[in-house]
Simulated assay, not measured.
Amino acid sequence: MSVASISSIKPHFHPKRLSPPTLRLHTPKIHASASSFLRPLHLPKIPKPLNTHRPITQITMSMEAGIGVMGTKLGMMSFFEPNGTVVPVTVVGFREGNIVTQVKTEATDGYDAVQVGYRRVRDRKLTKPEMGHLEKSGIIPLRHLQEFRLQSLEGFEPNQRLVLEELFNEGDLVDVSGTTIGKGFQGGIKRHHFKRGPMTHGSKSHRQLGSIGAGTTPGRVYPGKKMPGRMGGTKRKIRKLKIVKIDNDLKIVMIKGALPGKPGNLLRITPAKIVGKNIPKS
């Protein structure tokens, strides 16, 4: 390489790289107009206060067709009518009780109802608040207290005994409610009357539940699926049962059909609700 060619080579130095570093402040440019000052400021949203004046829905108990009583289930038997017809009946006995313990009105409690007590017990079987509630009206210690919501409270007062013969007659229809017999944890065949699988030809699914749904769609089990679980021990009401016989000497009443619970179970007997007769249509 010649000297002329060497002298023609210019160094590639960038002038900005050799200059000392400078500190630059990047300030945003403000473009303001007259209309921008008239716009409202965008403040953060404040959550609205809860509406405390919203009406609260109250769960109210349905009205009864009339005052009822409480009894004890004794068992079942066959009753022969005068024409020879055999009727299966449930015998219900009555211990000491069925006394009006309190009359609730719209002014004092917000609704009209009659509280009835049943089955006399010793004083030590009740708590002090329960004893104080009954001693207000001079009532004997009672084990069970239940309310009957009525449309009219005329003729009811505390410490009044309810007589079965004055409330019901033979041939009347009644609604009976009680607690069913608890059967514990049961399978699908006993609990929901499922069909069993084949018992032969190498089948190994006899009383199992089987498939409960698809895997991909919907990918879950729907709520309310009938499956094995706890059976019985729930409240059940049987409507429109006929009173076959009332025995005043034995203090029993015979009701046609089966009633919930085992012998010794507490039952609630009320007049049957018949729309248009003792219950308005609307």
Rank of each mutant, 00 (worst) to 15 (best):
M1A: 14
H12T: 13
F13C: 11
H14G: 10
H14Q: 11
S19N: 09
P20N: 09
T22C: 14
L25Y: 15
H31P: 02
A32K: 08
S36H: 08
L41R: 09
L43H: 07
K45A: 08
I46E: 05
P47W: 07
T52P: 07
H53I: 12
H53L: 09
H53S: 14
R54W: 15
R54K: 15
R54Y: 14
I56Q: 12
T57F: 10
Q58C: 11
I59S: 10
T60D: 08
M61W: 03
S62M: 12
E64W: 01
A65T: 04
G66R: 00
I67P: 05
G71I: 02
T72S: 03
K73C: 03
L74K: 08
S78N: 10
S78W: 08
F80S: 09
E81A: 14
N83G: 04
N83R: 06
T85S: 11
P88Y: 02
T90Q: 01
V91P: 02
G93N: 01
G93F: 00
R95M: 09
G97Y: 11
I99E: 06
V100A: 05
V100F: 10
T101S: 10
T101M: 11
A107F: 13
A107R: 12
A107M: 14
D109I: 13
G110N: 07
Y111K: 10
A113W: 06
V114T: 05
V116K: 05
R120Y: 09
R120N: 12
R122I: 06
R124Y: 15
K125A: 12
L126H: 09
K128R: 12
M131K: 14
G132Y: 15
H133T: 10
L134P: 02
K136H: 15
P141Y: 04
R143I: 03
H144G: 05
E147I: 11
L150Q: 03
E154M: 04
F156L: 04
E157R: 15
P158L: 10
V163Q: 12
E166F: 04
F168N: 04
V174G: 02
V174D: 00
V174Q: 01
D175I: 00
T180H: 00
I181D: 03
G182V: 01
K183W: 07
K183P: 01
K183N: 06
K183F: 06
Q186T: 09
I189R: 05
K195A: 07
K195V: 00
R196C: 07
P198W: 00
M199C: 01
G202R: 06
Q208F: 11
G210P: 03
T216S: 14
G219N: 10
G219T: 06
R220G: 02
K225G: 10
M227F: 05
G232V: 05
T234P: 02
T234I: 06
K235N: 06
K235F: 04
K235S: 03
K240H: 08
L241Q: 01
K242L: 04
V244D: 02
K245H: 13
I246G: 06
L250C: 13
K251C: 08
M254R: 09
I255E: 02
K256S: 05
G257W: 00
P260W: 01
G261H: 00
G264N: 01
T270Y: 01
V275Q: 14
K277P: 04
K281L: 10
K281C: 12
